[in-house]
Simulated assay, not measured.
Amino acid sequence: MSSLLLPQIPSTDTSAYCQARARLPEKLLEKLFNDSARNLENKVTQEHLWCGRKVLVIDGSTVSMPDTKENQKEYPQTSSQKKGCGFPIAKIGVIFSLVTGAAIALCIDVMNTHDIKLARNLYSFLKPNDVLLGDRAFCAYADMFAITKLDCDAVFRKHQSRTTTMRKGKIVGDCDKLVTWYKPTRCPKGLSKDEFDALPPSITVREIYYYIVIPGFRSQRVSLITTLLDKTSYPTLEIVGLYYKRWDVELDLRHLKTTLGMDILRCKTPSMVRKEIHVYLLAYNLLRSLMWQAGNTYNTPPLRLSLQGTRHHLIHFIPKLEIAGSRKRNRLYRTLLKVIVHKEVPDRPARTEPRTKKRRPKAYPLMTKPRHELRKQLQTA
């Protein structure tokens, strides 16, 4: 009888949690991520748009994961590393909204996948009248045509393989001209013969070039290629200012990988790795939704709010929100929104910092042999 009165000690075995997590369908998490992005984008009004257009920013990055046989088979490590000395790495392509900062679309592939291949898998998420913003990796003849065929437009930095000359093209303004691009003579990698044959013999694009004189900036001359040909509707300075905002995508990826911790994943199978990535993006979008709600409620630009600060405030409020009734929960939620906008991140244009690291690494050498070989060396030393 006395044994029945003893308190039950909770089990420390996490297998039930892991099994339940594994049963979650991958498509379900992908759908939840897409729904979170769609719900936030539906809140964007005309006043938030750039020249009446919705702007999306595209970029690629990598994430690492535990060194298991399943992960190595699906997402192998770099060929420059010896077997057993590296970690499986996946390449991700993400499209972000320039207005809300939310992640709109995701593509996952092996590490040696070129950014432009990821982009071609993401074009299906574009909607008519969207403007796609990206760096020079995405500036290709076939892609400029594919984007315009979707009734969208593109603003990319000019690829380094294309030479810049002032003798060709129709001048439409200062440092602004219309040029004709001709179809490549050979089919580029990543295109099938049918896709290559479907390309037109030439396309007209707009080239804008300008100089950067800010100390610390690596680029001194920038050439932009865009399909926005109307200089009246899309002035030169508006496009230059738009490309300057492309840096926001680097900050968004840093939030995902550093602030939220997606840089080093924990799951040991490829399926769970993909689920983990979708959950990170879902959590990121929910934070962006909270920032959007707080900013618009208290007349503060949502992108000037701190995502890390929003995360910390939400974590502190969750225990109270869980036990509160409906009326008190509403008051707590309004208080949470007010706390989030209490201290906005200052706008510091053209801010530069030296590209150096202050924190010293540990004095351990890098692993150049598998762990079992190193153990043998220790035993025979």
Rank of each mutant, 00 (worst) to 15 (best):
M166K: 10
M166Y: 04
R167S: 13
K168D: 11
K168A: 10
G169E: 07
G169L: 09
G169P: 09
G169M: 11
K170C: 13
K170F: 07
K170V: 11
I171H: 13
I171D: 04
I171P: 05
I171R: 15
G173P: 02
G173I: 08
G173F: 06
D174M: 12
D174N: 07
D174S: 06
C175F: 03
D176W: 03
D176N: 06
K177L: 13
V179W: 00
V179Y: 01
W181Q: 01
W181E: 03
Y182N: 14
K183G: 03
K183C: 08
K183L: 03
P184G: 13
C187K: 15
C187R: 15
K189D: 02
K189E: 03
G190H: 06
G190Y: 00
S192M: 08
K193A: 15
K193I: 10
K193E: 13
D194C: 08
D194V: 07
E195L: 13
F196Y: 13
F196W: 12
F196N: 05
F196H: 04
F196L: 14
D197I: 04
L199K: 12
P200D: 01
P201Y: 04
P201C: 08
P201W: 04
P201F: 07
S202R: 07
I203C: 02
V205H: 02
V205C: 03
